[in-house]
């Protein structure tokens, strides 16, 4: 059985990754908000953070530079939220998330 400490550690690992992604988004796109204002679950494109296709291109470059992961896939679901993006830059986080391939 998973202990409370293990759950805390798993959550903290994902939260650290999400935090790093938010900092990258704010920095690369020069957004006038604190990274923590972006929630893990909010949509990034269209409604939500209202990023556009040019922002996607910038994020592709940034993600490869900062996380060493090349996202050449045009699958927009990767950008469904910060937390969803975390599954792509850290695939080991996606293991227990049943929506990672929904």
């Amino acid at each position: 059985m998973t202990t409370i400490e293990e759950l805390r550690a798993t959550a903290a690992e994902r939260q650290r990754t999400c935090e790093a992604i938010k900092k990258m988004i704010v920095s690369r796109l020069d957004l006038p908000i604190e990274p923590a204002w972006i929630t893990d679950d909010q949509p990034l494109f269209g409604r939500g953070l209202e990023l556009d296709s040019l922002d996607v291109l910038e994020l592709y470059v940034a993600i490869e530079a900062e996380f060493g992961v090349a996202l050449y896939d045009s699958d927009m679901a990767v950008f469904g939220s910060v937390s969803r993006l975390a599954n792509s830059v850290r695939p080991e986080l996606a293991g227990a998330d049943p929506t990672s391939n929904a």
């Binding site: 959550a11 994902r14 893990d40 949509p43 969803r84 986080l93 998330d97 929506t99 929904a102």
Partner: peptide, 24 residues
């Protein structure tokens, strides 16, 4: 500290898993 996807929690008597958005 528990607001994160991928955690196995208990709701009532049932086991649930926290999710990333969008859920579909």
């Amino acid at each position: 500290e528990f607001a994160a996807a991928g955690l196995r929690l208990t709701v009532g008597d049932e086991e649930v898993t926290t999710l990333t958005s969008p859920y579909v």
